[in-house]
Computed example of a mutant assay.
Amino acid sequence: MNTAPSNAHGSHVQGMLLMCVGVACLSANDAIAKALTDGYSPLQILFLRNVIALPFTIGIALLMGGRAALRSHRPAAHLLRGALWVGAALMFFTSFIYLPLAEATALIFVAPFFITVISALFLGEDVGWRRWMAVLVGFLGVLLIIRPGGAAFQVISLLPVATALVYALLMLSARWVDKRESVWTLLVYLTGAGALLSALIVPFVWVPVRAGDLWLFAGIAIFGTAGMTMMTQAFRLAPAVVVAPLDYTGLLWATLFGWLIWRESLDLITVFGATIIIASGVVTILREHRTAS
């Protein structure tokens, strides 16, 4: 009896479940970060998140890839990726101070469109007209959310968009890493480089950590590491076209957390703009899958 199709189906289901739980964990990570911005600098939050998470990421890398997962062939590439990671995280955490959690989350979903633009304009990749249309429609969704020139416009709304741009550069920079290195190596060095680089500046903004907040810092490290690990494993178990669209469930979690904790709500125009961004992103993922096939 041929069990290959059933095995593939089971693997896909596992990948989808891991992706959904991983996205939920990262959403919890973001909600905790927003809560912590009331008393701490985004830089201090990022530093403690990375320092606490580093032992967990090393343990996961050893478990999944052995001691070879801790060996880097291009440390400079990881240091550069760490700088991009610190920049993106700082801008995203800062936006939490001023914006509803769901609005900031919706805007960061334009990262795939930036990846398309950068790949076409600077890396010489062939991008068809359908993907260009998806990019234009996606940015229309961004304009609906930030509403430049309108009474509701806030300059701070550009921070998540800038975060998405730097995050796109971070994703593309994975190409500079030696092909012999696994995703677990990338996870360890990204966390380590983030801890190292943020440590250089954090003394200037450091405030004593309240004992009652220690569990929040532990939570942001655990949820963030667990989320990244599960999402990474999801892509290993199932095709990107199956699991990648589930990343957008993060907007549902961000909306739920924002309402439960801060009683935040989104107006209809913002919801419409977020819907356009998500729909365009799913179309982009499907087009990339068809092109690869």
Rank of each mutant, 00 (worst) to 15 (best):
residue 4 A to M: 01
residue 5 P to L: 14
residue 11 S to G: 12
residue 13 V to H: 05
residue 15 G to N: 07
residue 23 V to K: 02
residue 24 A to E: 03
residue 33 A to Y: 10
residue 33 A to G: 15
residue 34 K to A: 06
residue 35 A to S: 14
residue 39 G to T: 12
residue 42 P to A: 05
residue 42 P to V: 06
residue 44 Q to K: 07
residue 47 F to N: 12
residue 47 F to P: 04
residue 53 A to S: 13
residue 55 P to Y: 14
residue 56 F to K: 13
residue 62 L to Q: 07
residue 62 L to T: 06
residue 64 M to Y: 14
residue 64 M to S: 14
residue 66 G to H: 11
residue 67 R to E: 10
residue 67 R to S: 09
residue 68 A to V: 15
residue 69 A to I: 02
residue 72 S to R: 03
residue 75 P to D: 13
residue 79 L to I: 12
residue 82 G to T: 06
residue 83 A to Q: 06
residue 89 A to C: 08
residue 90 L to P: 08
residue 91 M to Y: 06
residue 91 M to E: 02
residue 92 F to H: 11
residue 96 F to T: 02
residue 96 F to V: 06
residue 96 F to A: 09
residue 97 I to T: 14
residue 101 L to F: 04
residue 102 A to H: 00
residue 102 A to P: 01
residue 105 T to F: 00
residue 105 T to V: 09
residue 108 I to R: 01
residue 109 F to C: 05
residue 109 F to E: 03
residue 109 F to P: 02
residue 112 P to Q: 03
residue 112 P to V: 05
residue 113 F to T: 04
residue 116 T to W: 00
residue 119 S to I: 04
residue 121 L to E: 09
residue 124 G to E: 08
residue 134 A to S: 11
residue 140 L to H: 15
residue 141 G to T: 04
residue 143 L to C: 12
residue 143 L to P: 00
residue 145 I to C: 03
residue 145 I to R: 01
residue 153 F to N: 10
residue 155 V to P: 00
residue 156 I to G: 03
residue 157 S to R: 08
residue 160 P to Q: 05
residue 170 L to Y: 09
residue 170 L to S: 04
residue 171 M to A: 10
residue 176 W to Y: 15
residue 177 V to K: 00
residue 179 K to S: 15
residue 180 R to G: 09
residue 181 E to G: 01
residue 182 S to K: 06
residue 182 S to C: 05
residue 189 Y to A: 04
residue 190 L to M: 14
residue 190 L to G: 07
residue 191 T to V: 14
residue 193 A to Q: 13
residue 195 A to Q: 01
residue 195 A to T: 09
residue 196 L to D: 03
residue 197 L to W: 10
residue 199 A to I: 09
residue 199 A to R: 07
residue 200 L to P: 09
residue 200 L to V: 15
residue 202 V to T: 14
residue 209 V to M: 13
residue 210 R to D: 13
residue 210 R to L: 11
residue 214 L to R: 15
residue 215 W to D: 13
residue 219 G to I: 07
residue 221 A to D: 05
residue 221 A to H: 03
residue 230 M to Q: 07
residue 234 A to I: 04
residue 234 A to K: 03
residue 236 R to N: 13
residue 236 R to G: 09
residue 237 L to I: 08
residue 240 A to K: 05
residue 241 V to L: 10
residue 242 V to W: 00
residue 245 P to K: 10
residue 248 Y to K: 01
residue 252 L to S: 12
residue 259 W to R: 00
residue 261 I to H: 15
residue 261 I to A: 12
residue 264 E to I: 00
residue 264 E to S: 08
residue 266 L to T: 02
residue 268 L to C: 11
residue 272 F to K: 10
residue 274 A to H: 05
residue 275 T to G: 07
residue 276 I to A: 07
residue 279 A to I: 14
residue 282 V to H: 12
residue 286 L to K: 15
residue 287 R to M: 12
residue 287 R to Q: 14
residue 287 R to W: 12
residue 289 H to S: 14
residue 291 T to R: 11
residue 291 T to P: 00
residue 293 S to F: 13
